[in-house]
Design a protein around this nucleic acid. Sequence first.
RNA 1: GGCCCGUUCGUCUAGGGGUUAGGACGUCGGCCUCUCACGCCGGUAACAGGGGUUCAAAUCCCCUACGGGCUACCA
Length: 472
Amino acid sequence: MTDNLPHVRFAPSPTGELHLGGARTALFNWLFARHHGGQFHVRIEDTDKLRSKPEFTDQILESLTWLGLDWDGPLLHQSHRSGQYKQALQALLKTGHAYRCFCSKDKLELDRKQAAKGHEFMYSGTCRDLSDAQIKIRLNQGQTFTLRLRIPEGETVYDDRIYGKVKVNNREIDDFIIARSDGSPVYNLVVVIDDHTMGISHVIRGDDHISNTPKQILIYQALGYDPPIFAHLPMILGPDKKRLSKRHNAPGIQEFRNAGYPPAALVNYLAMLGWNPDTEQEIFTPEELVAAFRLSQVQKKGAVYDEKKLNWVSSKHLLAMTDDDILAGIRSIDPDWQTERPDGYNRLVIEQMKPRVRSLQGLMEDSTFFYQVPEEYDAKTSRKRWPDSEVNNLVRNYYDHLLVQVEWTAENIEWLLRETATEAIVPASKLIHPVRLALTGSGAGPSLFTLMEILGQEACLQRLKLALEKLP
RNA sequence: GGCCCGUUCGUCUAGGGGUUAGGACGUCGGCCUCUCACGCCGGUAACAGGGGUUCAAAUCCCCUACGGGCUACCA
């Protein structure tokens, strides 16, 4: 490119939803581009007609958008470039870098099976040096053929920005197929042409592509293109150290969204998987990540996905978010959440609950007592905090005091409670806990007096009355 | 099988010749306290193994083991 700024791309195939590994690859590309003021492109690799589904494209894009990974320029589709591939194939055939191979699929498969017993399988090169006459005969017979790349002698070397120098003897690479017998180009050719015509300067992708890279470099050379810079990211692993997949019931990005992880938290966590900022900072905003990101700080080894740490990162982000932002986040998952309540009330609830949860979903679930009368009382807490009818007397006294309380503030509520306890010559906690149980149905929750102030006099009285009837 | 890549606490990682091998999550204990969280303090826990090189190796070299990836007319 003429601007000298990096151009990178994320190239998912729409054969499934975006998962963690893909998201991380996209993220690192995006961080790299944004850090250097370059361009981040998204290209949909939809050449596999059978497995590609437009719904998946939509879903992937939605996930990227949700994560905040905005891309530059139009969305590209690989399938729209077929003319160009044909042209390149023709050129390679003409220059002798590619040749026709008439071996049938069945024969190749047989060879492969034979070889499986012994050692490696490589294409034997049967058709490598067919004469023009021989080719003509076969063509006249109507034999179908694939196109193979003629691999030159020597070795292919490249400098991986993460792995360092990677060197492969070309003997290890066989004359692989670049066009199928129906004339369609194969992935390795297609990426090369796409990346070249898009002006991609840095190819940043999963390290499962490391062995493909020399093949692709050979194609670049055959075509007379300059290869881009390569950087291979380590895989994200499951607890068994195998590449993370559905078998680990690894959630797709949409599930993280639905579970109520703030996108910035997921981005933060993913960035820390296999990368480190060279400082001891752990919690980053996306902007801070952009500023700090260096490819050179990327790890070579795979990293195990750890939900516990994600939860921690998420709780940190939640704590740092404003109540309004959290409310907006919740509404983006569930537009109807507590809409019948004033948002002022909801914000108070959020303020109280946000240090106690790890996700928006958790916040919604754990704050139901702010909105409805508890349906039951936690058995263990009941036994411990409300063991007998003496508690009823105590709570009834408090209830009576509250009945006449005109100014409903946390201070007044607390003062009254302590008064009630003092009158009965018991510690305040003897009253605090049963009251909380009556109001929330559980033994845990925000500070009782703040809770009561937020709930309001009417709700508190109603719930106390109910508990007095039902407990112990 | 072949080729490539990797290996520091359970997990994410710092450390690249001389360190009490550091931090974070988790876990355990304590403090705070009306509970639960938050917060704070503290504990637990790692250089895969073996050979070299060196006065000195987690750090450099070699081998082994283990793990992963690739080895398609998939992408």
